[in-house]
């Protein structure tokens, strides 16, 4: 079915390198048998500590890291928004949005997508003149304009200030409800995950170690998921006394 993601026993290993020398025969196992099923249109947050392999899993699903063992299947149309917006500084904003697309009326398509992230008036701006939040919204528009069945978000709010991040949460939730792509959001922010996701999955040392369905009405308030927050933090190895 379009939009479904299925990961079965996924293993990804990287060669061990000391400096620039690769040690032959030594491998570091980053993903150690990951099983994950995501339903079409589902919003899943992937939580994990640094080095847990969450970004690697996203990169494998995006087709950026090959050479894996085990199987996975993703929809045909996959878009990615990275932690850094990765806009081409020498192309105007609207050209960045439609980069790689083969639309005849690229300008119109780009403007429509920019209007959705409320940046229509910056279509002709140079990317270096944008604020961090604006650049990330352009990156989001660039991902959504491809009408993806699967949207991969790699900590896209990580580099933003707290206020901008709150506005982005609302924007992403709204765009997801309108377009209904399957979303995999990689993050290390528990609140963010519980605010946005239908399901929170915890990755630790290359394996899925916990999964929580977040059955709460949207838009959510932080006060509504206090208990769940404690549970997820416990899965991440943080007891509540530290987190509170």
């Amino acid at each position: 079915m379009a939009g479904a993601v299925s990961v079965r026993g996924l293993v990804k290993e990287f060669p061990v390198a000391v400096g620039r020398r690769i040690r032959p025969g030594e491998w570091r196992r980053v993903l150690d048998g990951v099983d994950l099923e995501i339903a079409p249109g589902e919003f899943v947050a992937l939580l994990g500590r640094s080095g847990s392999g969450k970004s690697t899993l996203l990169r494998v699903l995006a087709g950026l890291d090959a050479d894996v063992a085990g199987g996975f299947s993703v929809p045909r149309r996959v878009s990615v928004a990275f932690q850094q917006p990765r806009l081409l500084p020498w192309r105007r904003v609207w050209r960045n949005v439609v980069l790689g697309l083969r639309e005849v009326d690229g300008r119109v398509v780009a403007e429509r997508a920019l209007a959705e992230v409320r940046l229509a008036e910056r279509a002709d701006a140079w990317p270096l003149t944008l604020s961090g939040g604006e650049a990330q919204r352009v990156s989001l528009a660039r991902a959504l304009v491809r009408r993806p069945d699967l949207l991969l978000l790699d900590e896209p709010f990580g580099a933003l200030d707290a206020l901008t991040r709150l506005a982005m949460h609302r924007l992403v939730e709204q765009l997801w409800r309108e377009h209904r792509p399957t979303v995999l959001l990689v993050t290390h922010d528990v609140d963010e995950a519980l605010l946005l996701a239908d399901r929170v999955v915890v990755l630790d040392a290359g394996r899925i170690t916990a999964s929580h369905v977040v059955d709460l009405d949207r838009p959510r308030r932080r006060s509504s998921f206090a208990d769940l927050r404690v549970a997820v933090l416990a899965d991440l190895g943080v007891d509540d006394a530290e987190a509170a």
């Binding site: 990615v80 990765r86 081409l88 980069l99 790689g100 697309l101 660039r142 491809r146």
Partner: peptide, 11 residues
């Protein structure tokens, strides 16, 4: 990083 982004975008 930009080359990778372009690749993901289907260039």
């Amino acid at each position: 990083a930009l080359l990778e982004a372009a690749r993901v975008l289907g260039c």
